[in-house]
Write a protein that binds this DNA or RNA. Structure first.
Lengths: 145, 145
DNA sequence: AATATTGTAACAGAATTAATTACAAGTAGA
DNA sequence: TCTACTTGTAATTAATTCTGTTACAATATT
């Protein structure tokens, strides 16, 4: 049960690209901030690249946001790092009994509610941008002083 | 990625208890409608019992809703079948680097947004009752004739 | 007592996730 | 050009989760 941590990694990458934009953000550097393996970072960065969210080139060190971070929502990142987006968030039990009035109709009766719930979650993620997260990180960092 | 199918099974059970309330709803009968194993049904039914949603007794065949089904929301079922409810829906990557300004603050900056998204999903599930689902199943069944 | 049902533990197989290793392909600079 | 470094990607592993399955104890009914 639960949603994988790739969204949090994707957000971390994008926020760090912005905050360390004067530096060279190699996968190794990003990995050391996230505390994971550079290959993991490259995999996620590749998904972000496919979605048009970061610029990164084979052989050349460093990555950059491909858009204004105020234009990248958490939902954009969520979709980017979960590319098989045809899959529904809630699983439905397979093949209920078509001989039973409940088995025959349950999926059609429940699916819309699952979709609504999923859509509500996605809409909430759409409200927040990487820029919002970056501002908050900077505020928190200043408040520590 | 994704949420397990126990919610859909739990809804199926409760809807069937209502629609077949004149019959004796053994775990075997429920399982035949859901198309799963009676033990799976008993496990889920046990979770629903723990949450006060169904009545079921060792040794005595059949289960019944423990409340009016118009008072049981999909969120009630969701919570019942996912009893470790302290766990957050979105996973966060572990132990980011506290030496990095982003690593140090990212979790605190992202967590509220994840909670908001999760809460939005839950609120949507709270809007729908088992009674709504049952009515829809009956409507669909009548429409087939 | 005999029978049937629920409750529960234990286990297996599949799928997913995250980390890791290995290496090919590419770029940049000496 | 050659060397060093980086990204891209495939393959593998370990851990976890999920669903189904078997087995059996505990309980109730007849």
């Amino acid at each position: 049960m639960g949603i994988n941590s790739r969204l949090s990694v994707g957000i971390h990458i994008l926020a760090l690209l912005e905050i360390n934009k004067q530096g060279v953000n190699t996968s190794e550097y990003l990995a050391s901030s996230i505390n994971t393996n550079p290959t993991v970072v490259r995999k996620i960065t590749g998904l972000l690249r496919n979605a048009g969210l970061v610029e990164v080139h084979p052989g050349v060190a460093g990555a950059k946001p491909a858009k204004e971070i105020s234009e990248i929502t958490l939902f954009d990142v969520y979709r980017a790092v979960n590319p098989d987006h045809e899959k529904e968030l809630f699983s439905m039990h397979d093949s209920p009994n078509p001989m039973c009035p409940v088995g025959k109709n349950i999926q059609g009766s429940v699916e819309p509610h699952f979709k609504n719930a999923q859509r509500a979650l996605e809409k909430e993620l759409e409200k927040v941008t990487i820029s919002d997260v970056v501002k908050n990180i900077i505020d928190k960092e200043n408040a520590r002083k």
